[in-house]
């Protein structure tokens, strides 16, 4: 009995220092399979399309429901999460590549540390600790909460950095994701108390100014976050902040 086969062409790399190479795989088709279940099948039986035994393909995954951002990779030329990439909706052969904007650890696994470092740099949190109970913070209007929820959907998956022409080895641009987080935390009534610190952080080298308005980020974001609106709003905020910094302000 002949079963339908699914063909994969995977960009592999043994370690961060070695050169990448292509390897083809053919695995039996199952209904409703996604890229991750296909990779699991390769892991179960690591034999390539030529019938040679090989090492299992390495990739990262977490939630399997497109909220953790760990399983991002370039699938048929577009960066996206492999958990929601359904094999039946993809053109074959399916090409899998790592998001090369990031350092490749092995095969499809990449190191997204730069994104978490950027979140620390821009102070993407709300300081609430004190030496005594500070009491409840100001209330947030429900309509604003609903709006802010959309920005909070960012899962640091790295797709926007991969799509951005200005995030590369020639530039120190932190990328759209951490910028939008600044807008999220500045919009929070308690977070707004540290608004200036965050604005000054993104006015540093590699920050907001490196955006070239290609707007690939907003087209690529799997969560539909209005990244370019955030960037433009921050452009406005930093315009005022720059004047305040330069001329002084009575607040």
């Amino acid at each position: 009995m002949s079963t339908k086969m699914v063909k994969f062409i995977i960009t592999r790399q043994d370690n961060p220092e070695t050169a990448p190479y292509l390897e083809e795989f053919e695995i039996p088709h199952r209904p409703n399979m996604n890229v991750i279940s296909a990779l699991m099948e390769i892991r179960r039986n690591p034999v390539n399309a030529k019938g040679e035994a090989t090492t299992p393909v390495t990739w990262e995954m977490g939630c399997l429901e497109e909220v953790c951002g760990a399983c991002s990779m370039v699938i048929n030329g577009k960066p996206r999460q492999s958990c929601t990439a359904l094999v039946d909706q993809l053109e074959q052969p399916i090409r899998l590549e790592p998001m090369k904007t990031f350092p490749v650890v092995r095969d499809l696994a990449i190191d997204r540390s730069r994104m978490f470092d950027a979140l620390k740099r821009v102070k993407a949190w709300i300081p609430i600790d004190g030496t005594y109970d500070l009491g409840p913070g100001p209330r947030m209007p429900e309509t604003k909460r609903q709006w802010a929820y959309e920005l909070s959907k960012c899962m640091t998956c790295g797709v926007c950095l991969e799509a951005c022409p200005n995030v590369n080895s020639k530039s120190d641009f932190i990328g759209p994701a951490p910028l939008s987080q600044v807008r999220l935390f500045n919009a929070h009534p308690t977070g707004a108390m540290n608004k200036e610190e965050r604005l000054n952080a993104i006015m540093d080298d590699g920050g907001l100014a490196e955006c070239g308005n290609s707007q690939n980020c907003v087209q690529s974001c799997p969560k539909g976050i209005p990244l370019t609106t955030s960037i433009a709003a921050l452009n406005r905020d930093t315009t005022f902040q720059a004047f305040k910094n330069f001329f002084g302000s009575d607040r």
């Binding site: 030329g77 577009k78 022409p165 200005n166 530039s171 707007q215 087209q219």
Partner: peptide, 21 residues
């Protein structure tokens, strides 16, 4: 300086604004 810092990727992301970029 700005021009040579970009890695243009219109062939992969052929969106209007990226083309204008």
């Amino acid at each position: 300086y700005i021009t040579f810092q970009a890695n243009n990727n219109v062939s992969r992301y052929g969106y209007f604004r990226n083309t204008m970029f």
